[in-house]
Simulated assay, not measured.
Amino acid sequence: MTPIDPTLTEPLRNPETVLAALDFAGVGVFAATGALAAARQKHDVVTFAFFGAITGVGGGTLRDLLLGLPVFWVQDWRYVAICLLAAVAIWLVGQRDWRFRALLWLDAVGLAAYGVMGAAKAEAAGATPLICIVMGTLTACFGGVVRDTLAGQPSILLRREINVSAAIVAATFYMGLRVIETPVWPAAAVAALTGFLVRAGALRWGWSLPGFPERN
């Protein structure tokens, strides 16, 4: 049997490659949700691009500023390019009945991917596990908060169904697996899938956390 070229599998074993893939995926997905929010308001293509960019990089920008790191998209032009491409793609798709559902499901993917990515980047910067979870949550949610504010929609923070909690779950699972020394790739995959399934359950069956009880 011909042995597998190790250069073909090296990217899967390299933590930097795994994290970069998650980062690009999260930016692209969130940029698409920003453009979809602009579509709901029937904005022009420039506003599509603005919504896509600010949603795609908003959470990661806050994370990097809080961690004292160089802002990621300033250092690498590809992030902004991905945001613009996602916005143009949504513009070209045009009017579709399924766009709002697409926004919700793309948001679910973004919450999971960016919850893991934010925690992983904080971990790489030397933050403690709890701070990593906080950074993962901020990375996943802040762009969506800005998007909803600009679009005049209720913030994701104010929705009763499980939303932000999915990002917390993804970040927490990732850090829990890393604490027990699980390699980056399987830890990221399991954590992102778990976070997505939690959000998917909320979309499918209306899961929500209990509200503050009223006193008689």
Rank of each mutant, 00 (worst) to 15 (best):
A112H: 06
D107Y: 09
L65H: 03
W98Q: 11
C83E: 09
L67W: 02
E123A: 07
V71S: 00
R78I: 14
R96D: 11
V74R: 01
R78A: 15
A122M: 09
A120D: 14
Q95L: 08
A127Q: 01
L62A: 12
L104R: 10
F100A: 09
V116L: 07
Q75W: 02
Y114R: 00
A122D: 08
D97G: 09
L106R: 07
G115H: 02
R96W: 11
W105Q: 09
G59S: 06
C83G: 08
V116Q: 06
L104I: 11
V109C: 04
C83K: 07
I82L: 05
G110S: 01
A124K: 03
V71M: 00
Q75I: 04
A125Y: 03
L84I: 11
V80L: 13
L69K: 02
A86V: 03
L103W: 07
A108R: 13
R63V: 02
L84R: 08
A102Y: 11
L111C: 05
P70D: 00
R101E: 15
I90M: 14
G60H: 01
L85G: 05
G126R: 01
T61A: 06
A102N: 15
Y79N: 12
Y79I: 09
L66G: 05
L111R: 04
A122H: 09
Q75K: 08
L103P: 06
W98P: 11
G59T: 06
A119Q: 12
W73L: 03
C83A: 10
L69C: 01
L103D: 07
A102Q: 15
D97H: 08
A86Q: 04
G115M: 02
W77E: 14
D97Q: 08
R78W: 15
W77I: 13
G115I: 02
G110M: 00
A86W: 03
A81N: 08
D76A: 13
L62P: 09
L111P: 05
A127P: 00
G115D: 03
G115T: 02
L65K: 04
M117S: 03
P70N: 00
L92K: 15
G94F: 14
Q75E: 07
L85K: 04
F72R: 01
W105F: 10
D107R: 11
A89Y: 13
V116F: 06
A119L: 12
D107K: 10
W77A: 14
L111E: 03
A125T: 03
W73R: 02
Y114G: 00
R63K: 07
A122R: 07
A125E: 03
L66H: 05
E123N: 05
W77S: 14
Q75T: 06
F100T: 09
R63N: 04
R78C: 15
A87F: 11
F100R: 06
L92W: 15
V93E: 11
A122P: 09
R63L: 02
L69M: 02
L84N: 10
T61P: 04
T128A: 05
W77P: 15
L92I: 12
V71Y: 00
R78E: 14
C83M: 10
